[in-house]
Design a protein around this nucleic acid. Sequence first.
RNA 1: GGAGGGGUGACCGAGUGGACGAUGGUGACGGUCUUGAAAACCGUUUUAGCUUCGCGCUAACGCGGGUUCGAAUCCCGCCCCCUCCGCCA
Length: 420
Amino acid sequence: MIDIKLIRDNPEAVFQAMEKRGEGRESIDEIIGLDNTFRRFLQEAEALRARRNEVSKQISLMKEKPADLIAEMRQVGERISQIEAESSEITARLEDKLLRLPNLPAADVPVGKDSQDNIEVRSWGKPKEFTFKPLPHWELGEKLGIIDFQRGVKLSGTRFYVLRGQGAQLQRALINFMLDLHVNAHGYTEIFPPFMVKKESMVGSGNLPKFADNLYHDIEEDYWFVPTAEVPLTNLHRDEILTPGTLPLYYVAHTSCFRREKMAAGKDSRGIKRGHQFEKVEMYKFVEPETSVSELDKLTRDAEDICQKLGLPYHVIQLCTGDMGFAAVKTFDIEIWAAGCREWLEVSSCSNCGDFQARRANIRYRPDSESKPRLVHTLNGSGLALPRIMISIIENYQQQDGSILVPEALHPYMNTRVIK
RNA sequence: GGAGGGGUGACCGAGUGGACGAUGGUGACGGUCUUGAAAACCGUUUUAGCUUCGCGCUAACGCGGGUUCGAAUCCCGCCCCCUCCGCCA
């Protein structure tokens, strides 16, 4: 959520930032209008309440309760409830508009319309040359009996698959490898959060109210299934004031992620690239505002470290204003090479969200014991998404006989050096 | 799911219709004392909104509604925690 004061005091700057994202002016104009109305109501109600408080105090001191004063206050009370009813409707609309407004991009984010305008910032490794035609993972996976698409569909329908034997083990090895690296080498604290959360948590992270159509929702109990561990991690400190010395906080969590992917029906349907349920290791940081720029760089490097240790060629892309996520100030994507399907796959998206989530989730800290609470900055990044690293490993490490070499970094985590 | 008990400031805990943003204690911070520290004593210590920016006004005692001139206090609904019972990996 953007600071309403910023919109109030500097609507033009906000509008220009929104325009870079391809957002219209109407919602901002509407917000300003609602805010003005709300404040008029508020001031009237507060003046009336002040009057009522004062008179009530006087009445309490009198032995004889004067009927005329009480009658007047009864009217004042009625007027107050009238205003409250009207202004609560205004507030709800204002709140909804604010919650649906995306974050302001940082000044140094390249302006652009869509992924065409993203910029490559660096790359590592070279796609491997093969002496034979490398196969896509769906063919290899089926041949090796490590991915079962048909039974996935039987169990749950389209976009579901079953990992079997060394396929399942490979995924588990990767999860452990990544968690260990982030915990032991990068200084993160491991968290195992709930996969179902309440509505407030989804609002805090920015997934609700705007993106309900990509979420699974249990109506009976009103539980929402997390589309990423970013949701529970953001809300770990919701409604808290962190005491001096606690920042920065680095968290890492492995969760299943659930996404309806409704708008992408038919897209990427081959293989395990885009399922309704997938595993992901997520890094998350709560930091002081002054440090979030450099923390984003460190976060991205932590994700890259995984790719390097697994020997997977990648490049780092800076997203342009039009392609960035809702909550982000600035985002770097990491794309790894998949030799079989011959494409660069997005395995990580590392974002600085500034105070956007902190304001929604009311996450503050005190720099020292005397100072006022300030909003923290939050950052998130995949470290990494499992299906796509699996794809890249399967396809890049395949051999002519259809077997797959296990990357050296995973040797301590697997009981075999070759999947066959 | 059923029965009973409870939710008050960073924490503990008082408060059952009016002067209560809320007694007291702990903690934290500042001071006195001390070579220094502890102890003792004194003082300070919520968050947010509006704003004529004046610490002026308003709001917040789990959440939401109601009664009342006035609600932490009374009434209704919901949520959460504890105990017992039931069910269950």
